[in-house]
């Protein structure tokens, strides 16, 4: 990578700023307000550890804010943030062999708690009960997937990202994303009893 004197950066900075989502990345409150809950959900279900997910999400937002000058607008802010989160999750996964250090801190996703957040508008108590069971079941099934499968599955079906964005966030070729996604979907659908 070439190095440039600071003056080049200073001259070029206002031009580059025009091409990216300035308001979102330069305003940390807006960044938190717009993206944190979504990131937190993604990291929580990717790691299966809500406490760790809070830390990773805060790390992710801080890193994004601090590195905002390197964001060139080639992808959406959401895709960029997701790629940072994926790298942080992978960092964590590399230390999983030291579970004895982590066990004292680890918490599991309380699927009953998540299920209690179903929308209750216009549904009967029976339907709500079924919906709660579905949410709890799906949460448990997602946890059985491998990290790559789980991550691409959440990106596609919970975050509703397209394959190109998933490929960019994961740093994987699209065909590899398709393979992980297909395996994940097959496993989820078969466990849901759809097949």
């Amino acid at each position: 990578m070439a190095t440039y004197p600071a003056s080049c950066v200073a001259l070029e900075w206002p031009l580059r700023r025009e091409g990216r989502a300035i308001s979102e990345l330069d305003d940390i409150d807006l960044l938190v307000k717009t993206y944190r809950a979504r990131l937190l959900r993604f990291v929580t279900f990717s790691t299966g550890d809500p406490d760790l997910a809070e830390t990773i999400t805060q790390d992710c937002l801080l890193k994004a804010y601090n590195a905002r000058l390197s964001f060139r607008g080639d992808s959406s802010v959401n895709t960029w943030l997701t790629s940072i989160a994926v790298n942080l999750i992978r960092d964590h996964q590399r230390t999983q062999k030291f579970k004895f250090w982590k066990q004292a801190r680890a918490t599991a996703v309380d699927v009953t708690d998540v299920a209690s957040f179903i929308a209750v508008d216009c549904t009967s108590p029976e339907q709500q009960l079924i919906a709660k069971e579905q949410v709890a079941k799906l949460s448990v099934i997602i946890e059985t997937l491998s990290l790559n499968q789980r991550t691409v599955f959440l990106m596609k079906f919970a975050e509703e990202m397209d394959l190109a964005d998933i490929s960019q966030s994961m740093g994987m070729p699209i065909n590899t994303v398709k393979t992980h996604l297909h395996r994940a979907l097959k496993a989820v659908r078969s466990q849901l009893g759809a097949q």
Partner: peptide
Amino acid sequence: VFSQASMAWSDARSNTISRDILAHKPTRR
């Protein structure tokens, strides 16, 4: 249903975390 419930859950949880990201100390691997 999962997406709606998990997003509502995450929204509620997110609101309990400090908004002061700049005061957050990044974890070390």
